[in-house]
Design a protein around this nucleic acid. Structure first.
Length: 269
DNA sequence: ACTGGATCCTGATCGC
DNA sequence: TGCGATCAGGATCCAG
């Protein structure tokens, strides 16, 4: 489900509700997510939370002794509700606050994660992350240099977290379309100029999507339950068989790295 | 060192 | 209407 814009949208929506709250209870209903939810999270009971930030597609919820690291996987959503609200199917994790509200993670496919990171340490999954796409460190020069030895498809490369984080299947297809680059092109055969273009378009697409509150494909909702509105602006994703807005060619869908990849065979080379 | 593939899981949808 | 097959927005790990 969520790519970077969706995680950003969720983080922003949650922030006012989960910052500076006293935790009364931590409930782990289904610990079996991508990794088991650590029982030590119950140590947060009685603690007061700090702010919540985003790194890649992870949310970092800070406490005095460390951070709760949360990932939504493919199907996760986080909501703040009244603590008396009945649990829904697939509500796996809950933090109840002294003010009568509760933060809940719902994740049908259970590809998401809830982990604990001690203060002044970094989990290996966080440590290995590449630069944020919206940071100054990510630009055409960086991308070109990073791709120099990669012979595989450019689409797979920009979806690799060690290269750049936060570019998922939707926005990978979209940014390649905007850049006129064929998804299957060898990464090391994208010129420096086109890397510049691609880096800029990745930033553009992600920024736009964040402004729109994310892309609601199936059931993504923002923290307040409203949908994202970016879907209507997609040029190629999910538009197989439709005509390209730029050249009227028929948009195609092929499988790359076991993920569907949409592209315009004429505009993208 | 890279990369392709399998894998964790449920649910929606499609074809018969 | 029912049922099995297929496909989903992620990302790690392992074999080759």
């Amino acid at each position: 489900m969520p790519e970077l814009p969706e995680v950003e949208t969720t983080t922003r929506g949650l922030a006012p509700h989960v910052t500076g709250q006293t935790v009364t209870t931590v409930n782990i209903y289904q610990p079996q997510l991508r990794w088991p939810i650590p029982k030590e999270l119950t140590q947060l009971e009685g603690q007061t939370s700090g702010d919540i930030t985003r790194r890649a597609k992870y949310m970092l919820w800070n406490f005095p002794q460390g951070s709760v690291v949360m990932h939504l996987g493919m199907s996760g959503t986080m909501r703040v509700v009244d603590a008396e609200t009945p649990l829904k199917k697939h509500d796996h994790f809950e933090v109840v606050f002294a003010n009568g509200k509760a933060l809940r993670l719902n994740d049908p496919r259970r590809f998401g994660a809830v982990l604990w990171q001690e203060k002044n340490t970094e989990l290996s999954i966080i440590q290995s992350l590449g630069p944020e796409p919206l940071s100054n460190h990510f630009d055409g020069n960086y991308l070109h240099q990073k791709l120099a030895k990669r012979k595989g498809a450019i689409k797979n490369a920009i979806m690799t977290n060690a290269v750049v984080v936060g570019v998922g299947n939707i926005y990978a297809s979209e940014s390649l379309f905007l850049s006129g680059i064929h998804p299957k092109r060898a990464a090391n055969r994208v010129s420096k100029e086109r890397c510049q273009l691609l880096a800029n378009n990745i930033k553009l697409v992600l920024k736009k999507a964040i402004q729109q509150g994310g892309t609601t494909l199936k059931d993504f909702t923002q923290a307040d339950g409203s949908p994202g509105y970016f879907a209507q602006q997609l040029n190629v994703y999910g538009r197989e068989g439709e005509s390209c807005a730029q050249c009227q060619s028929i948009i195609k869908n092929m499988t790359l790295g076991q993920r569907s990849s949409f592209y315009c065979p004429k505009c993208q080379r």
